[in-house]
Simulated scan of single mutants.
Amino acid sequence: MGVCASSQHSTRKGGNSSRPPPTTKIIHPNGNLQEFRQPIKACLILSQNPDCFLCDSELMYVNSRPPRVPDDEQLRLDRIYFLMPLSKSQATLSLQELCSLAVKASGSLSHLNTVYSSQGIIFMFSRVQNLEVE
């Protein structure tokens, strides 16, 4: 999908370019955001959400099935993953569904803007790509 890339930069006094530590971000079907500062295996997330599967936002495209993250895979820091209902595992992703996921991610990530801004760090939702219909 390439929907959820981000860039971060500091607005702290003195021009210091510190960044928040990289995290793994998981967007739940209800829009809740879960963040992990340490590597975590997909199976740990899936054991808490047995009716869902995980998708890496970087690998989701229009008119393709959502690619499942293998249970034993370690989730990557600085990546955004979507928890998707199992009922959607065999359906192809439409442009509207990908846009809806992008809006959901944007809403979830906007909360981080508030948190990071209060710490002097700005988090920006920076691009939406690969949304052309094939």
Results as ranks from 00 to 15, higher is better:
Ser47Ile: 11
Pro70Gln: 10
Gln34Glu: 09
Cys52Asp: 13
His28Thr: 07
Ser17Lys: 11
Leu59Lys: 14
Phe53Met: 11
Ser57His: 02
Lys41Ser: 09
Arg37His: 07
Cys43Thr: 11
Ile27Glu: 01
Leu44Pro: 00
Lys41Asp: 05
Asn49Lys: 13
Gln8Ile: 13
Leu44Ala: 02
Pro67Tyr: 02
Arg68Cys: 15
Asn63Asp: 12
Phe53Tyr: 11
Ser18Trp: 00
Val3Thr: 01
Asp56Thr: 07
Gly15Met: 06
Asp51Gln: 15
Gln48Thr: 12
Lys41Pro: 00
Arg12Gly: 02
Arg12Glu: 01
Asn49Ala: 15
Ser64Arg: 14
Val3Lys: 07
Cys4Leu: 06
Val69His: 07
Gly14Val: 02
Cys43Glu: 14
Gln48Ala: 15
Gly15Phe: 07
Leu33Gln: 01
Leu59Ile: 00
Leu46Tyr: 08
Arg12Met: 03
Phe53Ile: 11
Thr23Val: 10
Asp56Gly: 12
Arg65Ser: 08
Phe53Ala: 15
Ala5Asn: 08
Ile27Thr: 05
Pro50Arg: 05
Ala42His: 11
Asn30Glu: 08
Pro70Met: 09
Leu54Gly: 14
Gly31Phe: 02
His28Asp: 04
Glu58Gln: 10
Pro67Met: 05
Thr23Pro: 01
Ser6Glu: 06
Gln38Phe: 10
Pro66Gly: 14
Arg12Ala: 06
Ser64Pro: 00
Asp72Lys: 12
Ser17Thr: 03
Ser57Cys: 14
Asn30Met: 03
Cys55Tyr: 07
Asp72Ser: 09
Ser64Cys: 07
Leu59Glu: 09
Gln8Gly: 03
Ser17Gln: 09
Tyr61Asn: 12
Ser18Thr: 06
Lys13Tyr: 03
Pro39Tyr: 12
Ser64Tyr: 14
Ile40Glu: 05
Leu33Val: 08
Thr11Tyr: 04
Ser64His: 10
Leu46Trp: 10
Arg68Met: 07
Phe36Asp: 02
Asn16Cys: 02
Pro50Ser: 13
Pro20Asp: 02
Val62Thr: 09
Thr11Met: 01
Leu46Ala: 14
Arg37Gln: 08
Arg68Ala: 15
Ser57Leu: 00
Tyr61Gln: 10
Cys4Tyr: 01
Lys41His: 14
Asn30His: 06
Val62Gly: 08
Lys13Glu: 01
Asn63Met: 13
Ser10Arg: 06
Ala5Lys: 06
Asn30Ile: 04
Arg12Asn: 08
Ser47Pro: 00
Ser18Arg: 03
Pro50Gln: 09
Pro22Lys: 11
Leu59Cys: 15
